[in-house]
């Protein structure tokens, strides 16, 4: 890049000061490593889990699958008189044609019956024994990584300092919701902290959804079921546990989709860099947006 274009770029840049600002160290090495291990482990567990589901693509409530009540969710395939396959999904008695996504998908124009499509599945095609091997292997990686993370957040005070919402956070929850809906993102020092919705989302995932999905996975084991009499029954029975395991998996997918969406709209490269190198460039408020209150809050930090 030569001198002229460089000057032109700087002049075209609305907030030249932002480029000059030093990068803020946002994520510690430990958090970065555990984050990416978790990405891999959860992705593998989701996809191998969907392959396992394909072996019996129906969910029930209660102890048993054969209690006389129909499954509340069923994904299946049927063939018409002409030999054409179609996929269906039945939820609480309502049936939907889901050919192409659920029940029946196609690979290079060749239709195949499988609850979830090959691109969402590990291995791609139904293979229960191998899917279980993948699932349990990554379950241990996920578990050890998750326990290490929780221990780290407590010991390093990451939990108390960065994740626990303050009273002021909670008071501003309404404004934070409006800001999110308007895609108005924090800038300056506010951007160095997690916002209140972010904190609540992370805490819910870390301390509710992930422990719950692990517990529900353990509840599927006919051996761990023996731990103390009837604990699987507290959740409605083994088939309920299987349903909850499945539902929580999709709640986690929803979280990941929202998380990735927010990462993209608040600056994909900047966010990615901060989760790889730890360094984050703090966005500046657009001119005229800075309130007196925020400027006052900014002042002491500027001097650091």
């Amino acid at each position: 890049m030569n001198e002229t274009t460089s000057t032109a770029t700087v002049m075209a840049e609305p907030r030249p000061a932002a480029r000059a600002r030093p990068l803020h160290y946002r994520h510690t090495l430990a958090v970065r490593i555990m984050h990416w291990i978790n990405v891999i482990a959860l992705a593998m567990m989701l996809m191998s889990g969907l392959n396992i589901f394909t072996a019996h693509p129906a969910l029930y409530w209660g102890n048993s699958s054969y209690s006389g009540a129909p499954p509340w969710l069923e994904i299946g395939a049927r063939m018409d008189a002409n030999g054409a396959m179609s996929g269906y999904t039945r939820i609480l008695g309502h049936e939907f044609d889901t050919t192409g996504v659920l029940g029946v998908s196609s690979d290079d124009g060749q239709a195949y019956a499988q609850a979830f499509p090959a691109w969402l599945s590990v291995p791609s095609h139904q293979w229960l024994a191998m899917a279980r091997a993948w699932h349990f292997f990554f379950a241990w990686i996920f578990l050890v990584n998750g326990l290490a993370y929780v221990l780290y957040t407590i010991v390093s005070r990451h939990l108390a300092r960065d994740l626990a919402p303050t009273r002021r956070d909670l008071a501003g929850i309404g404004r934070s919701i409006v800001d999110h809906l308007r895609f108005r993102h924090p800038s300056g020092d506010d951007a160095k902290r997690y916002n209140v919705l972010q904190k609540i989302a992370y805490l819910t995932v870390i301390f509710v959804l992930l422990p719950l999905i692990v517990l529900m996975g353990l509840g599927l084991s006919p051996r761990l079921d023996t731990l103390f009499g009837g604990w699987v029954g507290w959740f409605g029975g083994r088939q309920s546990v299987r349903s909850i395991h499945f539902i929580v998996a999709w709640l986690l997918v929803v979280f990941v989709l929202v998380h990735v969406f927010e990462v993209i709209v608040t600056g994909l490269w900047n966010n990615l860099r901060s989760m790889i190198t730890g360094r984050y460039r703090v966005p500046q408020a657009p001119a005229g947006h800075v309130t007196v209150q925020r400027m006052a809050a900014d002042a002491p930090l500027e001097e650091r």
Binding site: A55, H56, N63, S64, S65, Y66, L128, L220, P222, R238
Partner: peptide, 12 residues
């Protein structure tokens, strides 16, 4: 007792 198949279903 409950019979748990590797496929995922159970019967009592």
């Amino acid at each position: 007792t409950r019979h748990d198949c590797v496929e995922g279903w159970s019967a009592v």
